[in-house]
Simulated assay, not measured.
Amino acid sequence: MTITTAAPATPAPETVPDLETFSYGGGWQSTAALVLAARGELPFRTFLFANVSDDSEHPATLRYLAEHAAPFAAAHGIALHQLARIRRDGSTETLYGRLTKPESRSLPIPVRMSNGAPGTRSCTADFKIRVIGRWLKAHGATAEHPATIGIGISLDEIERANNRRCEPHERIVYPLLDLRIRRADCPRIIRSAGLPVPPKSSCWFCPLHRLSAWTDMRRTEPELFERACALEAHLNARRADLGKDPVWLTRRGAPLAEVVPTDNVLPLDFGDGACDSGWCFT
């Protein structure tokens, strides 16, 4: 799909640009937005999926994208672009690769510190916001003619609308808020199009997972859970070499394998994290 801009010579600051895109995160809200766009109830014909990388995104999200979201978008004339973080040398950088790079000292994910609080993170900015921003600029977005980028924040999480940093070349809108759509409305919208409801969208090792999500992973995806345990151990081995305190993937201050139950009883979950359905991009 070729996108061109044809703005007036001296547009007013409030002029809506021709480049209208939607940030697709693979979760309930953005998939509901995809359905609404297919119906003509939202104006977006270009959806952008910033893939943190095939080794970092949850495999179920990537399967849903390939088997359901992408074919649905194509059938309704919607361009669903999958984007990646590209280095200056042309190679692709992955979040998991950055975490496990031998000489790296950075922790771009919000690992839990000894007091249970999440550390600072750069993963969302580096692997999602900036990746989409580069695509927008490459397709004509400028500070004078910003592109519209829709974010799938629903009415029940309206407070998140103020947490998204706005770049000079983009104009952020929240169409689900305008339609007063709540997260609970999204499965009905998705099923009405004949699509299955997507799984929770996040990186498989995200420290903002709720404890119930880790428990589900240990029970239903044991190999993926073991990879998360191995990643946590790898990070702490490197921190020990640097003389730093350990970090964790939950706020319980102990190794993941010790914190997550091995039986089938779901634990009480008092909000160990915020990654319920695509905290980064819904």
Rank of each mutant, 00 (worst) to 15 (best):
Leu266Val: 14
Arg183Val: 11
Leu195Ser: 09
Thr31Leu: 02
Leu256Asn: 06
Asp178His: 01
Ile78Lys: 12
Ile153Pro: 01
Tyr174Cys: 00
Leu34Gly: 06
Arg188His: 14
Arg98Ala: 15
Gly150Cys: 01
Glu223Phe: 02
Ser122Thr: 15
Met217Ser: 11
Ser212Ile: 10
Pro108Thr: 09
Arg191Gly: 08
Asp156Asn: 13
Thr250Glu: 05
Arg252Gly: 11
Arg251Val: 00
Arg218Met: 02
Ile172Phe: 04
Thr282Cys: 13
Asp185Trp: 03
Ala213Cys: 00
Arg218Trp: 01
Ala257Ser: 14
Ser277Leu: 04
Asp55Val: 04
Ala79Lys: 07
Pro59Asp: 10
Arg180Gln: 14
Thr120Pro: 04
Cys280Ser: 15
Leu136Met: 10
Glu159Arg: 07
Ala37Met: 07
Pro17Thr: 07
Leu266Asp: 12
Thr100Tyr: 06
Ala60Phe: 02
Ala60Pro: 06
Thr220His: 11
Asp245Gly: 06
Leu224Lys: 04
Phe22Ile: 03
Ala257Leu: 10
Glu226Tyr: 01
Tyr174Arg: 00
Val247Ile: 14
Thr120Lys: 13
Pro11Lys: 05
Ala254Thr: 08
Arg251Lys: 11
Glu103Pro: 01
Leu36Phe: 07
Asp276Asn: 14
Pro196Leu: 04
Phe47Arg: 07
Lys200Ile: 02
Gly25Trp: 03
Phe225Met: 05
Pro110Lys: 11
Glu223Trp: 02
Ala228Leu: 06
Leu179Pro: 00
Ile190Glu: 12
Val265Tyr: 02
Pro198Phe: 08
Leu42Asp: 10
Thr61Ala: 12
Ile153Asn: 03
Asp272Gln: 13
Arg191Phe: 03
Pro255Leu: 09
Trp248Ala: 05
Leu224Val: 03
Ile181His: 00
Arg45Val: 03
Ala125Glu: 15
Ile129Lys: 12
Gly278Tyr: 04
Leu231Thr: 08
Glu67Asp: 15
Thr46Gly: 05
Gly278Asn: 08
Thr4Gln: 13
Gly25Glu: 11
Arg45Tyr: 02
Phe281Tyr: 08
Glu232Trp: 10
Val247Thr: 05
Arg218Gln: 10
Pro11Asp: 04
His58Thr: 04
Gly25Phe: 05
Trp135Thr: 06
Ala75Met: 04
Ala254Tyr: 01
Phe22Ser: 14
Leu179Trp: 00
Ile153Arg: 00
Leu36Ala: 07
Phe225Cys: 03
Thr94Gln: 10
Pro187Glu: 12
Arg165Met: 13
Tyr174Val: 00
His68Val: 09
Pro71Met: 10
Leu235Glu: 11
Pro207Gln: 06
Ser154Trp: 01
Glu93Ile: 06
Ala193Thr: 09
Pro187Val: 10
